[in-house]
Amino acid sequence: MLRRLLWYSILLSGLACVPAVASDSPYLTKRQQLMMLAESNPAELTLWKGEELFHEKRGPKNASLEACDFGLGPGVLEGAYVQMPRYFEDASRVMDLESRIIYCMKTLQGFTEEDEPIARKHSSADHTADLVALYTYIASQSDGMKWDPPMEHPMEKLTRDAGEVLFYRRAGKMDFGCVSCHSEQRKRIRLSYLPSVHQPEEWAKAISWPAYRIGHGVVRSSQHRVRGCYWQMRQAGLNFGSEASIAILSFWTDRARGHVATLPDLKR
């Protein structure tokens, strides 16, 4: 009897070590295999490349990005990403992390839109984009923290609220909106469980970009995700870093508020 009790307590303590997961969320639990793999996320290679690039003196101005202000002061990376998108006075607009990195690559390093480090927005099988690497490194400095996008500036609020309108906005040749796939739990497209915007725990995991996408073999960003959604919805192509893209990111981040970010994540 005592021995059995001991076994139970060991078992229970083991369970307690497993990251807290809503057991009724198939989006989270059906990904046990991914969670086990997550101990060795290939995104770490991208992260290391990003760390080097961040500190390296580059561009026409031969400067590093160490002086870049991601919202918490120049060079402060810890917790910066979970507090984005954010309104930046110097740029007079709301920016997501990717837009902010580009802004600093231009202002601090002197790169232009046409230069390879900015022009290449996404990675391919044989080339990791600098931008994705930097994004992965900076985002990783918020791993395990809670999403907490600021809503003090009126533009931050308006951007989030417009993002919510866009989320529910149905259009295009298939009448879809983001809402079509992300408003109910336990729903799948083919075999893929879809995260619901109404379930903050799974939503917080779902919006955890950058993530190494197993099906793509590279690290992808939130901009890449939202572009793919509009493509599948048969709406017009969404431009990288556009105001509309940031509005959607602002709404989706707000919906994960108070729940833990996994950075970088591992996805299907």
Binding site: V165, L166, R169, A236, N239, S242
Partner: peptide, 11 residues
């Protein structure tokens, strides 16, 4: 939101 869709150059 309508401005973002049609006037902002986002799409």
């Amino acid at each position: 939101a309508e401005y973002l869709v049609f006037e902002s150059g986002s799409f």
